[in-house]
């Protein structure tokens, strides 16, 4: 019992003191208060908020760079046991779970608007008087292209850019998977190629997403303020886009580390974490494509 335990429970690595957490806390403070001020200064005099916000992001990137550098160094000098590896894996897993819950809120809003609030305003169920008294002209349709107050917009179709983006993201998920297999098989050239393709596909997705936004704003008149349909459309695709950006940056960092010769078939937690995250944004996109665009 004891010997079996001794192998699994090697000395667990407890890092010595680090100044990165407090730097990170200051960064988050600058970002949060900077973002708050920026929002409050919209349409007013003063730009102090945006400077604070940018300072915050600069400090955050400085902190992430230093912190990750420390961790990579510790990992490469063999300080981490398999137990430590499991801690990292678990943490990433739970982090992704928290992200799932975050997206669930906005999908919940989408379902609530489609199933309840919009039909009720249209007079469905026992809400005939709601419709009659508030906005008798209002018709319940989805996508909601005419709001109760009478503002109109056009819906975003699923064909074209969204479909193309679906293919791009699905393909990148497959190439990342191939990269993992190449890593396990020790085929470094293939690994590098697949990683580069995946990162490029990620950025291509973002490029087309921005194109789609420009199209929506300028040609369809679909804006963030276009009633509940526009609200949900932009919050879901916007937060997804932010997560794709983060995921692509993670993949890029991992790719750079692969070029520096990091990771082997037994020790590649950071690689796997980035790929899990990538598969997660892919799955979110599939739900998005289906519920926001197609249905």
């Amino acid at each position: 019992m004891k010997s079996a335990a001794a192998t699994r429970y090697d000395k667990y690595y407890v890092p010595t003191q680090s100044h990165w957490p407090i730097v990170g806390a200051v960064a988050l403070f600058c970002i949060a208060s900077g973002a708050g001020l920026t929002v409050m200064q919209i349409g007013k005099q003063g730009t102090s908020g945006s400077y604070l916000l940018m300072t915050g992001f600069a400090v955050l990137f400085f902190m992430l760079f230093g912190w990750i550098k420390n961790v990579v160094h510790e990992s490469m000098s063999g300080l981490y046991s398999s137990q430590m590896d499991f801690s990292f894996r678990q943490s990433m897993w739970w982090f992704i779970f928290s992200e799932v819950m975050f997206f669930l809120v906005f999908f919940g809003v989408l379902f609530y608007a489609r199933m309840f609030s919009v039909p009720w305003l249209g007079g469905e169920g026992n809400n005939a008087m709601t419709n009659e008294l508030l906005w008798p002209e209002f018709q319940s349709v989805w996508p909601l292209t005419t709001t109760p107050s009478g503002e109109t917009t056009q819906a975003m179709g699923w064909f074209g850019l969204p479909l193309l983006n679906t293919f791009i993201l699905l393909t990148s998920s497959v190439t990342v998977h191939f990269a993992h297999h190449a890593l396990l098989a020790g085929k470094r050239t293939q690994l590098k190629a697949f990683m580069i393709i995946s990162v490029l596909l990620g950025f291509a997705f973002l490029y087309f997403q921005v194109t789609e936004y420009i199209h929506a704003y300028h040609e369809l008149g679909l804006t963030l303020a276009s009633g509940i349909y526009g609200n949900v459309f932009y919050l879901l695709t916007g937060f997804h886009g932010m997560h794709v950006t983060l995921g692509a940056i993670l993949l890029l960092i991992v790719t750079l580390r692969i070029f520096k010769g990091h990771f082997n078939k037994d020790n590649h937690f950071a690689f796997e974490a980035a790929t899990w995250y990538w598969h997660f944004v892919d799955i979110v996109w599939l739900c998005l494509f289906f519920f926001v665009y197609v249905l």
Partner: peptide, 29 residues
């Protein structure tokens, strides 16, 4: 906690960015 984050985010956009998540005028509630 992510659900709370989502809620405050929508309060922010409703207040400052013209969304209508919690306003019947735009189909919200």
């Amino acid at each position: 906690m992510p659900v709370l984050a989502g809620a405050v985010t929508m309060v922010l956009t409703d207040k400052y960015f013209g969304t209508d998540f919690f306003n019947a005028v735009g189909g919200g509630d």
